[in-house]
Amino acid sequence: MTATRARQRDPLSRLVLGVDPARRALYVLGMAPAVLYFSWGLTDQLGADPQNVLERALGLWALRFLIAGLAITPLRQLGGPNLIRFRRALGLLAFYYATLHLSVYLLLDKGLDLSSIVADIIKRPYITVGMLAFAVLIPLAATSNNTMIRRLGARWRKLHRLAYLAAAAAALHFIMLVKVWPLEPLIYAALVAALLMYRLANSLRPRTRAVRP
């Protein structure tokens, strides 16, 4: 087996290297905020409470990529450009950011204090909801490759409707941790709500093959 052939067959290297320059650029650009925030954090440029700023920024980018991924289909159906080839990258970026966000919480914030983490998950609804969002993303990320799409067939699309749940839980997680009602979490929640309502409205409409995503 040649190296090229191996790369094509191996989802990991295909994912890392990509085949489409635009998609590769999206991965690189998409990871830039994480690189920037970590480097700002390590060089004391995140203000008085750097750990908190980093943790929140990573979580926010996860939510942004989730929303971007969910916007692809409505965008095309409503006459916008067809960006479907970027959807996997957006979803995976959301997963990467959620993983980093969770890692900062577990390692830096909680110092891997297991009893305190378990207590948080059980007692703090906003942590419970955040964990749910992350847990839901795991099977989605694990099946975000051509092999799994082929293997799962029609079930793949059903499974990936879990992205709606992940986005709703992530938006709720954001709202639940603020003290008052600042605009930002409400805007994200409204975006997620609009994208979910669009799906709901679509699913209630009499279907023809043409409108199926």
Partner: peptide, 17 residues
């Protein structure tokens, strides 16, 4: 919504850690 058992002391160094 959150525990009050611990606190982060602002500006004591350590940065992200």
């Amino acid at each position: 919504r959150w525990s009050q058992a611990t606190e982060r002391r602002i500006g004591e160094g350590g940065g992200l850690f």
